[in-house]
């Protein structure tokens, strides 16, 4: 591979050495930022209902960290929009209070639930979820498949819920048997 083969995403940084560019390309491949967007209003409503089946049950009011990609304005705006929607819905029968948190400061925040905005980098999210024993919810099914988040919700044609068992175990979260029968477990 020569320098011209570096992905175009790195072209705004012409001063980067070839080795560094390769390392970043590898990092981007291993932990890519989410390309799946964020939960839609309908999917947030579904999340609220799905939480009825979670163990341990959430005690209200539920504090939600809506996490965005640090330094990414679009991701932050998306998180703010999500937070505004979460503030007015029931989560598992409980009132919710949402706070917008950057991915880099997530570890220091206080929350019971993480909802990811568009473009969020996965590693700090799942680490914070494990540290806080909190449920991580995303629109990014691939992130759940990879174990970077616990639950994904998709309602494009029909409602589908994806749960990563390993991530759930590591965050100390369980779900009712009947619910587990209905979702796609990884």
């Amino acid at each position: 591979m020569n320098a011209t083969a570096v992905p175009s995403v790195f072209q705004p940084f012409p001063g980067l050495t070839r080795r560094l560019a390769m390392a970043m390309a590898l990092a981007a491949w291993v932990v890519p930022p989410s390309q799946a967007g964020s939960l839609q209003p309908e999917e947030l409503q579904i999340l609220g209902k799905a939480l009825n089946f979670m163990e341990p049950a959430l005690n209200g009011p539920v504090s939600v960290a809506v996490v965005y990609r640090d330094g990414n304005d679009a991701s932050r705006r998306d998180a703010e929009a999500l937070a505004a929607q979460i503030d007015v819905i029931d989560l598992g029968g409980q009132h919710a209070t949402a706070a917008v948190v950057s991915s880099l400061s997530l570890a220091d925040a206080r929350f019971q639930l993480i909802v990811t905005a568009a473009g969020v980098d996965s590693e700090p999210v799942i680490e914070a979820a494990q540290a806080h024993r909190a449920l991580c919810v995303t629109a990014d099914v691939d992130a759940v498949r990879a174990g970077h988040c616990t639950m994904a919700i998709r309602a494009a044609r029909k409602v589908e819920i994806f749960v990563n068992r390993g991530a759930a175990i590591q965050t100390g979260i369980g779900f009712a048997t009947a619910f587990r029968m209905m979702v796609h477990e990884q």
């Binding site: 009825n52 089946f53 979670m54 163990e55 049950a57 009712a176 048997t177 009947a178």
Partner: peptide
């Protein structure tokens, strides 16, 4: 040790 929070229906 602990049953689930909600019994589903």
């Amino acid at each position: 040790a602990t049953a689930f929070a909600q019994s589903p229906d």
